[in-house]
Simulated scan of single mutants.
Amino acid sequence: MTSIVVCFGEILLRMSPALEGHWLQDARMPVFVGGAEANVACALASWNQPVAYCTAMPDNYLSRDMAAWLEGRGVDTSPVLWTGQRVGAYYLPQGSDLQHAGVIYDRAGSAFAGLAAGAIDWDLVLQDAGWFHFSAISPALTPSVAALCREGLEAATRKGLSISVDLNYRSKLWQYGVSPVSVMPSLVEYCDVVMGNLWAAESLLGIPVDKDVHQQGSKQRYLDHSRSTSEAILARYPRCRRVAHTFRFEKVSEGLHYYATLFSRDGGLHVSREFRTDAVVDKVGSGDCFMGGLIYGGVQGWDPQRTIDYAAAAAIGKLQEKGDSTRQTVAQVLQTIQQHA
């Protein structure tokens, strides 16, 4: 039987208002189911990888509709904890990016943010799992959620699972009086696969980035920095086997360029094909789709080059889809790779 990937994190609703108040004039605002780990789960389900999603939601019709939507996408929601009073949400103007200032979070007091160590029966949730995934977003919410993440990581380690983390850095979420560098390194110690970008590694792990890297501006400079950052992570975290970085650059005259790297402890640096697109429909969820590709390649036992090409192709494909999560099939991702041969 194929082992299950368990994704753990907060389910969210994304409110996507049109700019300049048109959402009020039209009395209309698109709403999407989101959350980094839910997006990863949906990507894996689209590729027929068995996946379960562990989160917390209040037991009301809104949450049940969201759970049914995930089930319809092929995600097992049996690990959902039905508790609390509200689902977290965020507001992001159409066409915006989560890294920019336009995002407004409405997550305080959510069912997930209210979780604490002991709330989840990890042995039950992970009983059929072969892989456990979380992101740096969850430990950013509250110290009690950070403690719960550690509890899950300890359980996954006891069971011999592969563990991955996405170093999502959201400065607006780290509001409980501690530096991310005082929390994340001790959680990354449990991880086999670490994904992010150079700047997240600095913000969350304290691994410095050359302040002039943008001024240098060359692809080779970024690749050299990816190698040195990856080597630093592998030296600091003996369990880690693979480190992935993504690079996304957008220019009006040239469209969007996207490539990624995967540094393997036993195989060195692997660079994906460089992908380009002029058709960016929605910037949300591309990194989550990339993370899903890394996990998918790992579960399939692919070599690093095949894995990084697949993950990067999936990410560029997600930019051409509306909503937080991808619906691409494996065949469509492979076609994207061939188109950029």
Rank of each mutant, 00 (worst) to 15 (best):
D303Q: 15
W302H: 12
I316H: 08
I316V: 15
Q320W: 02
A314S: 12
Q300V: 00
L319C: 14
K322L: 15
D309F: 00
A312W: 07
S325L: 05
V299E: 12
A312T: 15
Q300P: 01
R327V: 11
I308C: 02
P304Y: 09
G301E: 08
T307V: 01
T307I: 01
K318F: 13
G317K: 14
I316T: 13
E321F: 10
T326L: 05
A312P: 02
V299C: 12
G298N: 15
G323Y: 07
E321G: 09
G297D: 06
W302L: 11
K322G: 07
L319Y: 15
T326D: 00
R327W: 00
P304V: 08
G297M: 01
G317L: 15
K318T: 14
A314F: 05
P304L: 11
Q300E: 12
D324M: 05
D309N: 14
I308Q: 03
G323R: 08
A315K: 11
S325K: 09
A313W: 08
A312E: 02
L319S: 13
Q305P: 01
D324T: 03
T326M: 06
W302I: 06
A311I: 00
V299T: 03
I316F: 01
Q320D: 00
G317T: 10
D324W: 08
G323P: 05
R306Y: 02
V299R: 06
D309A: 02
T326Y: 04
T326P: 07
G317V: 13
W302C: 12
G297Y: 05
L319R: 13
A315L: 12
T307N: 04
I316Y: 07
G297I: 04
Q320T: 10
R327D: 06
K318P: 11
D309W: 05
A314G: 11
K318A: 10
K318I: 14
A312Y: 10
K322V: 13
A314K: 03
V299P: 07
I316N: 01
I308A: 02
G323N: 12
P304S: 02
D303P: 10
A313E: 09
L319E: 12
Q320E: 15
I308T: 06
D309K: 02
Y310I: 03
P304E: 09
G317W: 12
I308W: 04
I308Y: 01
G301Q: 05
I308L: 07
A313S: 09
I316D: 01
Q320N: 07
R306T: 11
K318Y: 10
Y310K: 04
S325C: 14
I308N: 02
E321L: 11
R327P: 00
Q305V: 00
I316L: 08
G317H: 13
G298W: 13
Q320F: 02
D324I: 05
I316E: 05
K318V: 09
Q305S: 08
I308M: 06
K322A: 15
Q305R: 07
D303H: 14
